[in-house]
Design a protein around this nucleic acid. Structure first.
Lengths: 325, 325
DNA sequence: AGCGATTGGTAAAAGCTTTTCTCAAGCCAC
DNA sequence: GTGGCTTGAGAAAAGCTTTTACCAATCGCT
């Protein structure tokens, strides 16, 4: 204890926190000595008193981390400056495990919880609605009167289709995932709104092989072929691009392909590298972090769903040039 | 406080912890009431006294989470039963950020720290050697006298090459990453030990396009072609498999391809799905978790490097049948 | 019936900070 | 020179739990 190196416990505390009245010279001396002996206050004791643990919990059911990791990075990025650390709890759709983790977090007096997942239209398998700590939802469905952050898939899809139009495409087909996904319906809705109903929407699964197969289907039909494919995610887009290449159709000369997600490992390795839509998950995480912090500090936050804009990532699969930044 | 519902503070504590002497009936009553009002002890207060926070920190510089996530899952899996939660701190090779996170963890009185990364032969950009809490290294280079867990890449490579031999391959080439990676040298060493020096080792980078290019190089040479490719990771293997398909070489009929890492998103989506070597990172995490816990509890642990065996994942890119389990 | 032993429970301390209250000393002004 | 301030620092309480020490009452035994 720093008090050993000079003054009383309370004087030391006041010196280090710049509170209370005391001689400037004493304050300096205490600070100096604290620095020398590497004194750091015990956050547990501090938390016990202040009712703030400077800790939050991140709950996720996204095992791959495809969505959770960027969100986590954003949260951490936003909160590290405030001295807040993050418990990461991966529950894999197991309600019992989820409850255990939530209880453990509450025991540890987290200042708040952020729930995140891999689908906008699914709840985590645990009820967080009546906790005595604030809860913020990010990229997963929230409860009534909660604060929820999610990507604006409609705007993202519009971005994609408008870009295809801008590079001169007119016959834009949409290959996407299962229709029961909310994102799928929302993206398809925006697609229809911008591109009309001239080309078909092909619903399937989120895999490369579906992208591949969908291209087969499209090219087997009689009549004019699409000159662009708006794909529901990057994996589908990659499968589609592969299928086109195998058919001798050139991307992007003959057909533009655009993806969704900007999952680097897929998008950047596709031939050619995919132009795609990034959901800005890190920014989403950042805002979720700041929001849960605000709630923890008692600042008022308007409940509701906040849609964050997506961003177009221009690579080579559509032709066209990236807008100069 | 549960005491409000019956007895004194200390009696309640003893009842709930099954310590001290007291009437069985009183104990039961306290427990029941505690259950009813949902009382849960404050872990901060408990930690203050017991010097155990039931919290550990996981430090990583692996932004993608390719390695960290399985390790994290294993740690969490092993420790959740012990009531231990995990702070995840992603430092991206930024020493200052790393130090901030380490300090924050120490302030919060973590019981231990696990350091993990993306390379066996690189240190994290922060010195953890003289902390007053135990440190365990997992999939990153540790310090003198520390406990380090890592995959046995040599054994994994042997597994791969032996499998290729078992499915009847004799001319096995090795396409891998940059020679300065320790894993690369170790895997190449095992390759040479098992397959001899008949076919070349091609060093390059960890990308699909390198796998692609390496196949071009191999097939452009005069003379007999390899009948199997042992690839340094799944991305290279995928690129190689694609290149072979484009040349009309059938996988696995003409050439077997085997990968390394078992990165599902790559291995399972390759055509055909890749047989590959799994480093069992989750198990590695589990052991690291149990070890740091043991150290935190003062149980003795032999320092040194522990190599964990890899496991062969048989899919379709080599032919052959999975050994019946 | 009386004494020691056992039983069932409470009071208190400790763990580390922060905050509020108190106190002694020094200062100024009259 | 003395009364009222200001100043600088320390004492104490609070936050929640666990543990040790303690006390009153009951029990068993002769």
């Amino acid at each position: 204890m720093a008090a050993a190196a000079g003054v009383s416990i309370s004087t030391a505390s006041k010196a280090l926190n710049d509170t209370g009245r005391m001689g400037a010279e004493t304050r300096e001396r205490v600070k100096r000595i604290a620095g020398e002996i590497g004194y750091r206050p015990n956050a547990l004791a501090r938390g016990l008193l202040s009712k703030r643990s400077f800790t939050i919990g991140l709950l996720t059911n996204d095992t791959y981390g495809r969505f959770t990791l960027p969100v986590m990075a954003g949260i951490s990025d936003a909160l590290v400056d405030h001295g807040v650390s993050v418990f990461l709890c991966a529950i894999e759709d197991d309600p019992a495990l989820a409850q255990i983790h939530v209880d453990a977090m509450l025991d540890k007096q987290v200042d708040g919880i952020i729930a995140t997942g891999k689908r906008l239209d699914r709840r985590l398998p645990v009820d967080l609605s009546n906790l005595h700590v604030p809860v913020v939802y990010a990229f997963t469905e929230g409860t009534q009167n909660s604060v929820t952050f999610r990507s604006d898939d409609e705007q993202g899809a519009r971005l994609a289709v408008e870009w295809l139009a801008k590079v001169g495409r007119r016959r834009i087909a949409h290959i996407t995932g299962p229709e029961e996904f909310f994102s799928v319906r929302e993206r398809a809705g925006a697609y229809h709104a911008v591109a009309g109903h001239r080309e078909p929407v092909l619903y399937g699964v989120w895999s490369e092989s579906w992208g591949h197969e969908a291209v087969e289907q499209l090219w087997k039909r009689p009549g004019e072929k699409p000159d662009a494919l708006f794909c529901g995610n990057d994996q589908i887009a990659r499968g589609a691009a592969d299928a086109l290449r195998e058919r001798g159709v050139k991307v992007p000369q003959d057909v533009s392909v655009i993806g969704f997600d900007n999952w680097e490992i897929v998008a950047a390795q596709t031939r050619p590298p995919l132009t795609t839509v990034d959901m800005e998950l890190k920014e989403l995480g950042r805002q979720a972090g700041l929001t849960v912090l605000a709630l923890a500090e008692g600042r008022p936050v308007e409940p509701g769903v906040r849609k964050l804009p997506c961003r177009l990532i221009v690579r080579q699969s559509c032709g066209g040039k990236a807008p100069t930044e």
